[in-house]
Nucleic acid binder design. Structure first.
Length: 423
RNA sequence: GGAGAGAUGGCAGAGUGGUCGAAUGCGGCGGUCUCGAAAACCGUUGUCCCGCUUGCGGGACCGGGGGUUCGAAUCCCCCUUUCUCCGCCA
């Protein structure tokens, strides 16, 4: 969440930054400033009255002890008056605070200064590409044919028991899932991350904390009776572990990794690009999450980017890295790198990871701070990245490593699968 | 699901209506002593908001919300949560 102090300091700059994300925030910003001014006036008035009331309460106590009940009675009357007016002011203040909160919470994070404006995925900047792109040739198969031929995944069965987008993994297909999850977790642990296994459902406060609410309401599955949300990513529970926490500076960076199933309604995305594993309602993902000192968070972002690149190299997949333009960046992000792998038979790039620095945006929402040597609490930076999301990796793996009517498992993964080929 | 007992500062733990933002201990930070360290001793030690601004003043916060009272950590109601016992159960 943006801080009122930031807006107060330079509202025009905030408006300019948000325009990079194609958001016209002027009306909201002006409203926020108007509310803020009124709020501060009310607060001053209220505080003064409360100060008087506190003073009276103390005096009454002393007067009673001294037996001066008449004098005390006079003060009591004044106190009763104050009670009425403070109550009115308190209600007014609460309403203004709520209004300010409601206005602030719909404003997205400010993009990093390096983020270029742009309107769609077309405007993203390709900053890196590696691996060999095999030209489409005879014998190549799209992954949904491979999974069907070898009985790795049954999409229809998933439709029957749950619905479209909930595949059932079978035999070597299931084992491949488990192998990838273990591989990704182990690689992260080697890189210094601590493994966490979080709940798959979170409460409302957590959904607000990482910014899924109110922005992505409607994209999450909800258990309405219990007011719980199925997590769209492990980012939500793992980052919220540190909600309302003040860390010691020497505890930074906090590095956590979690495997979780992820649930997304993907409302409005039916039709294109949903074939096979391209877009699912439930999928598996290993997520890396860091909490870092503001001075070091961009260096950390680069490290995380390199970690993800390393995974794709070990899986021998051609990939590219994009720096997202303002228009394609998420609500909460200040800077995002997307990773895409080449799908040989579909002849297109598939997004498999998104690595972002949220700076203080999430941390402010969840009051995540750290305390340095000077004893002052300071808001931390949060970052996260997929390392990695399984379905499209599986798709690319099957398509890119398919030859002579067999899928050849990359060497790095064989210790995990226990088999070298699927045929 | 039923019954009972709790929830207080980084931690432990006092406080059952009045100068309590809260005793005490531990921990942390600074200092004295020491070649240095330990011990001992002295001091200090929460978060947020508002106002004049290197500092000071005011306000809020004792799980969350509401109420009683001139005055609530303390009394009442609701919620959340933890523990113990019973029931059910992977």
């Amino acid at each position: 969440m943006l801080q009122i102090q930031t807006i107060r300091k330079d509202a025009e700059e905030v408006i300019r930054c948000l325009s990079v994300k194609n958001v016209d925030a002027r009306a909201i910003i002006e409203e926020v400033l108007r509310i803020d001014e009124e709020r501060r006036g009310i607060q001053k008035e209220l505080d003064d009255q409360l100060a008087e009331a506190n003073q009276i309460a103390k005096s009454v106590g002393i007067l009673f002890k001294e037996g001066k009940t008449d004098e005390a009675a006079v003060l009591k009357d004044r106190s009763a008056e104050l009670k009425k007016s403070t109550k009115a002011l308190e209600e007014k203040l609460a309403a203004l605070e709520e209004a300010q909160q409601q206005a602030l919470i719909v404003l997205p994070n400010l993009p990093h200064s390096s983020v270029k404006p742009g309107h769609s995925a077309e405007d993203n900047e390709i900053i890196h590409q590696e691996g060999t792109i095999i030209p489409l040739s005879e014998g190549m198969l799209p992954h949904w044919e491979i999974t069907s031929n070898f009985r790795l995944i049954d999409f229809e069965l998933g439709s029957k028991i749950t619905g479209a987008g909930f595949p059932v993994y079978l035999g070597k297909g299931a084992k491949l899932q488990r192998a990838l999850i273990s591989f990704f977790l182990d690689e992260a642990i080697k890189a210094g991350y601590n493994e966490v296994q979080p709940p798959l459902m979170v409460n409302e406060a957590s959904a607000y904390g990482t910014g899924q609410l109110p922005d992505k309401d409607g994209q999450m599955y909800t258990a309405t009776l219990d007011k719980l949300f199925m997590i769209p990513t492990a980012e939500v529970p793992v980052t919220n572990l540190y909600r309302d926490v003040i860390l010691r500076e020497e505890e930074l960076p906090v590095m956590n990794v979690a495997y979780s199933a992820c649930f997304r309604r993907e409302a409005g995305s039916y039709g294109k690009d949903v074939r096979g594993l391209n877009r699912l309602h439930q999928f598996d993902k290993v997520e890396i999450v860091q909490i870092q000192h503001p001075d070091k968070s961009y260096a950390t972002l680069e490290e995380m980017r390199e970690h993800v690149a390393g995974l794709l190299r070990k899986l021998e997949l051609p990939f590219r890295i994009l720096r997202l333009c303002g228009g394609d960046m998420s609500f909460t992000s200040a800077l995002t790198y997307d990773f895409e792998v080449w799908s040989a038979a579909q002849e297109k790039w598939l997004e498999v990871s998104s690595v972002s620095n949220f700076e203080t945006f999430q941390a402010h929402r969840m009051k995540l701070r750290f305390k340095g040597k000077d004893g002052k609490a300071q808001t931390a930076h949060t970052l996260n990245g997929s390392a990695l999301a399984l379905p499209r990796i599986v798709a690319a793996l099957l398509e890119n490593h398919y030859s002579n009517k067999a899928v050849h498992i990359p060497q790095a993964l064989v210790p995990y699968t226990g088999f070298e080929t699927i045929e």
